[in-house]
Design a protein around this nucleic acid. Structure first.
Length: 423
RNA sequence: GGGCAGGUGGCAGAGCGGUCAAUUGCACCAGACUGUAAAUCUGGCGGGGUAACCCUACACAGGUUCAAAUCCUGUCCUGCCCA
């Protein structure tokens, strides 16, 4: 087992806050002395299906704890999901049905298995205790915190200012999450930076229950593909852990290198966005990362390819990562069609004299969502091309001589091969 | 429970009887240029039609009018103030 200071160095890497730090040191030292692993809690609400890289940030930290010999405790928030976490959102979340929660939880565990060792983790549903709660228990829980303290949190302040509703049930959320910590006797709880408040409530409740309070570790929020907003399902700026190697590679290459912020003094500052991803999504050491994101030492493009390789390797292995890189270079640098062009079946009955209108074709291929949409893609700035000669189509009333195997492109990303069928 | 204000496209936010499929900004999509980066420029951003034009949409349901996102009534929802 590694020494406390060695463990601490690894744990600290990429974190935002550890409160209180000295308590963590103490816990680590005691764990080494007694041989008892720390119980590290991480809660997830089964509200959706796709686990994306944003979720992997705390999960990777959880895996680190596992690797250091500690006990991961996964809370599936089936009850908290019915409330909806107010953290970092400007609107309340609708409750989900039990069936949805059940299905989501299973899907989550499968996906999470790509990052942590689920078999070695303790997995518990918080419904296990909340379903047993009596009203008197709820009252006892709600007596633990004042309205003032609840309202002082930033999320609520913002919503009050903006005039968006806050439901009473949402105030229960931090209390429920805190109660989970009491139930599983957590030593450490992980969460995103917006979780700090919720994590602190856990400390409060544990202390009140006569337990040693947990250490709260928050991880920075991972920004999405746009380099601006938090990576999220609803924003469509995410990379899913279940996506193909090519998709993950391509999406990573499309992220901005840097972004600008305005600091307190009103000065514009340029920050490296790639650096953030390296820190939060790869195991590279700070020294390696510094070298990679320095444009003088490493060409930004090469750095980004490394980043993409690292990410793809995590989920698909090194061979797939190499292949994805080769495919990317061939396709975009070499301006070639993808190796595997998706085929779309088109009925011969759609043809008239062996021909089809370009608008209809684009809709049938799924490139355009409607005729109007198809027409928008055409016009003088059209990026629609067909066949090996990449004939550019600009007129909406063009008739295409449609043959089996014809390749139709819209830009370089949407490429399809026509497969003519009879039935 | 009472008073006041308000609900418009993904968001913000104009419009307040016809000229409104709805100004503008952001976001988003496509193209040029690139490193599928940034910056910049161009075009687009409800559906059908080659087009003229038609349909559906401004919380919901009715009504007034030749004509409603715009006026009236009711319902639902939200905020603020009072209780």
């Amino acid at each position: 087992m590694k020494s406390a200071s060695e463990q601490l160095e690894l744990i600290r890497r990429g974190t935002e806050q550890i409160v209180p730090m000295d308590a963590l040191v103490k816990k680590l030292e005691r764990s080494i002395a007694t041989g008892k692993p720390l119980r590290v809690k991480y809660g997830i609400d089964p509200t959706g299906f796709d686990v994306h890289l944003g979720h992997t940030v705390p999960l990777r930290k959880l895996r680190l704890f596992q690797e250091l010999g500690h006990q991961a405790v996964l809370i599936i928030g089936d009850y908290t999901a019915m409330v909806g976490d107010p953290s970092g959102r400007d609107e309340s979340r609708k409750g989900l049905t039990r069936e949805q929660i059940e299905a989501n939880a299973q899907s989550y565990l499968t996906q999470i298995g790509r990052i942590i060792d689920v078999n070695r983790a303790e997995v518990v549903y918080n419904g296990a205790w909340f379903s047993q709660f009596r009203f008197s228990d709820v009252l006892a829980l709600t007596s633990q915190i004042t309205v003032q303290r609840m309202l002082e949190r930033d999320d609520f302040t913002k919503r009050i200012k903006a005039g968006t509703p806050i439901y009473l049930s949402e105030c229960l959320y931090p209390l429920m999450q805190g109660r989970d910590s009491v139930e599983v006797r957590a030593d450490v709880e992980l969460g995103g930076s917006e979780q700090l408040y919720n994590l602190m409530v856990g400390r409060h409740l544990q202390a009140d229950a006569g337990q040693e309070p947990q250490v709260c570790i928050t991880m920075p929020i991972l920004k999405g593909l746009d380099g601006v907003k938090k990576m999220g399902k609803s924003l469509g700026n995410y990379i899913g852990v279940g996506e193909s190697a090519d998709e993950q590679f391509g999406k990573t290459l499309s992220i901005p290198d840097t972004y600008e912020i305005i600091d307190e003094t009103g000065q514009k500052q340029t920050r490296s966005f790639m650096k953030e991803w390296f820190e939060l999504l790869t195991d590279r050491s700070p020294a390696e990362i510094a070298k990679l994101v320095d444009p003088v030492k490493t060409h930004p493009m090469e750095a980004k390819k490394r980043l993409a390789m690292d990410i793809v390797t995590t989920y698909h292995g090194e061979a797939a990562a190499l292949a994805a890189r080769a495919e990317f270079e061939r396709r975009f640098s070499g301006r070639a069609d993808p190796t595997e062009i998706p085929e779309v079946a088109i009925l011969r009955s759609e043809l008239n004299d062996g021909k089809i209108g370009i608008v209809r074709l684009l809709v049938l291929l799924g490139i355009a969502s409607s005729n109007k949409d198809a027409k928008r893609l055409l016009g003088p700035t059209s990026g629609v091309t067909i066949g090996p000669e990449r004939t550019k189509i600009t007129e909406a009333n063009t008739l295409i001589e449609l043959t089996d195997g014809l390749v139709v492109r819209s830009g370089s990303k949407k490429v399809f091969r026509v497969r003519l069928t009879d039935a």
